[in-house]
Simulated scan of single mutants.
Amino acid sequence: MLSLRRYEEKDGETILSWIQDEDTYYKWSAGILGTYPITLNHFKKINDMEAFMVIEEKEIGFFTIRSPEKNVYRIGFVILDPKARGKGLGAGLIKCAIQYIKTHYPVERITLGVFLNNERALRCYQKVGFKEISKKEVNINNLIWQGIDMELSE
């Protein structure tokens, strides 16, 4: 069973160890934290966000929550330990995030974003019940990546 705990600055090393290549980094962050490779110093931007570690005996995942507008909550920076991928734990992580939001906030909508080249994450979000609401193009290292915003539809 998965559980949550608040992110602590010491978790940064663990999370950065899960980002094993440049492609993974940009799919995860869209470069918001800086260019690859990032350091723990760059990762300190996370300290200003509502962030969580996901636990299954040990830390297996991470995500953030922010509120871009009243009663709208956005899940971001979702990542799993590479050893935990392919076991359904990503869907469990997202369900934990949704449950936390619904328990702690007056929520009208829950959203997230994903790049189309991140097929595993896209399938995971669809499995949990997110549907595409808009498309966008993002410049990643002078390449145009196709992204979509998704919203939980219940």
Results as ranks from 00 to 15, higher is better:
residue 88 G to Y: 13
residue 33 L to H: 10
residue 26 Y to N: 13
residue 43 F to M: 02
residue 47 N to S: 14
residue 96 C to F: 10
residue 122 L to A: 12
residue 73 Y to C: 03
residue 139 N to R: 14
residue 11 D to M: 00
residue 121 A to I: 05
residue 137 E to F: 15
residue 22 E to I: 00
residue 59 E to F: 06
residue 61 G to A: 06
residue 8 E to L: 09
residue 13 E to R: 11
residue 55 I to L: 12
residue 90 G to T: 01
residue 16 L to N: 12
residue 2 L to K: 06
residue 76 G to I: 02
residue 148 I to T: 11
residue 123 R to F: 12
residue 106 P to C: 14
residue 15 I to V: 15
residue 133 I to F: 01
residue 122 L to S: 08
residue 97 A to Q: 02
residue 69 E to Q: 11
residue 94 I to D: 05
residue 58 K to G: 09
residue 105 Y to Q: 07
residue 39 T to S: 10
residue 17 S to R: 07
residue 73 Y to E: 01
residue 13 E to V: 05
residue 108 E to W: 09
residue 134 S to H: 07
residue 139 N to Y: 10
residue 90 G to R: 01
residue 45 K to V: 08
residue 4 L to K: 05
residue 108 E to P: 01
residue 113 G to P: 01
residue 74 R to P: 06
residue 27 K to S: 05
residue 97 A to V: 03
residue 24 T to H: 07
residue 138 V to W: 05
residue 21 D to E: 12
residue 1 M to K: 13
residue 83 K to G: 13
residue 102 K to W: 02
residue 119 E to D: 11
residue 58 K to Y: 14
residue 76 G to P: 04
residue 57 E to V: 09
residue 57 E to W: 09
residue 114 V to E: 08
residue 78 V to Y: 08
residue 75 I to C: 02
residue 41 N to G: 07
residue 8 E to N: 10
residue 17 S to H: 12
residue 39 T to Q: 00
residue 20 Q to E: 15
residue 125 Y to S: 02
residue 119 E to A: 12
residue 2 L to A: 12
residue 126 Q to F: 09
residue 144 I to N: 10
residue 124 C to M: 13
residue 132 E to G: 02
residue 67 S to I: 02
residue 19 I to E: 00
residue 111 T to Y: 11
residue 45 K to M: 15
residue 112 L to C: 11
residue 128 V to K: 00
residue 57 E to K: 15
residue 18 W to K: 02
residue 126 Q to S: 05
residue 123 R to L: 11
residue 137 E to A: 11
residue 135 K to H: 14
residue 95 K to I: 14
residue 72 V to G: 05
